[in-house]
Structure formats: C-alpha cells, structure tokens
Amino acid sequence: MAKLKAPIERPLSPHLQIYRLTLTMLMSIAHRATGILLYFGTILLAMWLISVATGPAYFAFVNDLFSTYLGRLLLLGYTWALLHHMLGGIRHLIWDTGVGFERKTVEILAWTTLIGSIVLTIGVWLMGYWVRGGLS
C-alpha cells in the first residue's frame, strides 16, 4: 500500500501580532466578539421567556435578577452587542453585493457601525427608562 503523503506545509497568513491595528480590523474582531456574546446571551432571553411561561413568582425572580446592577450591565452589553452585530452584519451584506470596498467607504462604514451601535443602544435604553417611568 502506498504511503500516505504528509499534508502540504501551506504558508500561514500573518495575523494579529504582525499587522498594525486598524479600525477595520478592530471592527472585524468586534463582529466576531459580539457574535460570541450574543450566542451566550440567548441564555438570558430563554430564561426570561421561560420565566413568563412558568408563572408570576419565577417571572418576578428573573425580573429582580435583571434589575440588579450586574443584571442591567449584562443587558446593556447584550443590547449593544445585538445592535453592533446587526449594523456590522448590514455592512457585510452591502459588501456581499460587491460594492463598498474603497478605502474611504470602508472607513465610513466602520465608523457608522461603531457610532450607530452606541447611539442606538443609548436610544433604546432611554426609551426603556421612559417606559418604566424614570431612572429607578
């Protein structure tokens, strides 16, 4: 039987330690990082939905948990990750059509994603506090 050939030593592409940090690179990393956050963040959503389905006592318990400082911090992070990943995703969908690769456009898209996600997060939370009836 013929000997199995060893896998070809393919050249490795330069990575994080080699390239100078750029905004677009940071946004690429942020897209993946927010994706991972959202993946585990679904635990919060599932927990909340199950609490509503279970009954008033468990619903109150989960609501209290989410109302603590840590709970709110997690939800704030989840909101930002969600909106950032959504805007970043739209950026990718634009690229999928084959446009928007010019250096200037790429920079504009990156800044729009970053600033947009922060503005939208603040907006959503202000709206939430407004619905709740004040900062409590």
Partner: peptide, 21 residues
C-alpha cells in the same frame, strides 16, 4: 434577523415593568 430583531427589541422595551399577566 434584521427586522425580527428590531421588532423583538422594541416590543420588549415598550413592555418594561409590565406585570406578569
């Protein structure tokens, strides 16, 4: 996910503090 996420986010936000029933 784009329209669905927006719908879910806003429907949850507009019901913050709502009682269980």
């Amino acid at each position: 996910n784009i329209p669905l996420t927006l719908f879910i986010v806003f429907s949850i936000v507009f019901h913050i503090g709502t009682d269980h029933a």
